[in-house]
């Protein structure tokens, strides 16, 4: 009798231990699930919505005409091929382009045209250069290419670091007072993806290898970062004009 009672007692204890073990496993699983949910929420929140960015004052661009500046029939055509993520392109914009515009575009001697040449995406991954290029086309659609162009360079950050994330590109447009809904629709629909690819095809046609590249009346300038070279190329082109 006593032995049977002891066995029953033992079985009961074993069952209770097994039940407690199952409960513990469920509790641990619950905690793990909670941890996964917390991590998921954090990840879904990143990157932060827009972040801070530099704004630029809209300015007057001499004889602005879409992605070009200057007289349509100017004797010299200067074509720039650049990538908004490329640091040297920003340097070109900051130090060289203004001088070309002042010396040759405003005086009616040359027309300056901008073209996209996406190189950084291929080096660092991501598609920020391409999206920035498409965004600039969307700004161009609203007649504000050059302001947007300056704003992009003013906010250039680490390559592939999220400076030109879509939500920021949209916020840039807002800061310039563009029609936000139209801009957002334009960017979301990849409307100008082909236009950017067409520019790239043009760059390949010139056998360009890097950015920024400058073509003066069909001839590449060896070092566009050296204003003396740029000036010499433009002067040579002007001299060759009949």
């Amino acid at each position: 009798m006593k032995r049977k009672q002891a066995e029953r007692q033992q079985r009961r204890q074993q069952a209770m231990r097994a039940q407690r073990r199952r409960q513990i496993v469920w509790i641990i699983a619950g905690v793990a699930l909670l941890a996964v949910v917390v991590a998921g929420i954090l990840i879904s929140q990143a990157p932060k919505p827009v972040g801070e960015f530099v704004t630029v004052e809209p300015t007057t661009w001499p004889m602005a005409d879409g992605k070009a500046m200057g007289l349509a029939d100017a004797p010299v055509l200067i074509e720039e091929f650049a990538d908004f993520q490329c640091p040297y392109c920003k340097q070109f914009h900051d130090n060289i382009q203004g001088r070309i515009v002042a010396d040759y575009v405003e005086t009616g001697k040359a027309r300056f045209e901008f073209h996209h040449f996406i190189v950084i995406d291929g080096n660092v991954g991501g598609n920020e250069s391409r999206r920035a290029a498409e965004a600039s086309e969307c700004a161009n659609e609203q007649g504000r290419f050059w302001d947007y162009f300056s704003l992009l360079y003013a906010n250039q950050g680490a390559e592939g670091g999220g400076s030109y994330a879509d939500n920021r590109l949209k916020a840039f447009a807002g800061s310039l007072g563009l029609d936000q809904a139209q801009f957002d629709r334009c960017l979301d629909s990849n409307k100008y993806a082909q236009a950017v690819r067409d520019d790239e095809a043009k760059a390949r046609g010139y056998r360009l290898r890097g950015t920024p590249s400058l073509i003066v009346n069909g001839k590449a300038v060896a070092n566009p970062m050296d204003y003396n070279q740029v000036q010499a190329a433009i002067e040579a082109a002007l001299a060759a004009v009949p």
Binding site: I28, V31, A32, A35, V36, A39, L42, I43
Partner: peptide
């Protein structure tokens, strides 16, 4: 168990 849960969330977020 609390430490385990917090650390697991930390591991997943750090991995990201």
């Amino acid at each position: 168990l609390f430490g385990f849960g917090v650390a697991l969330a930390g591991v997943l977020y750090s991995a990201y």
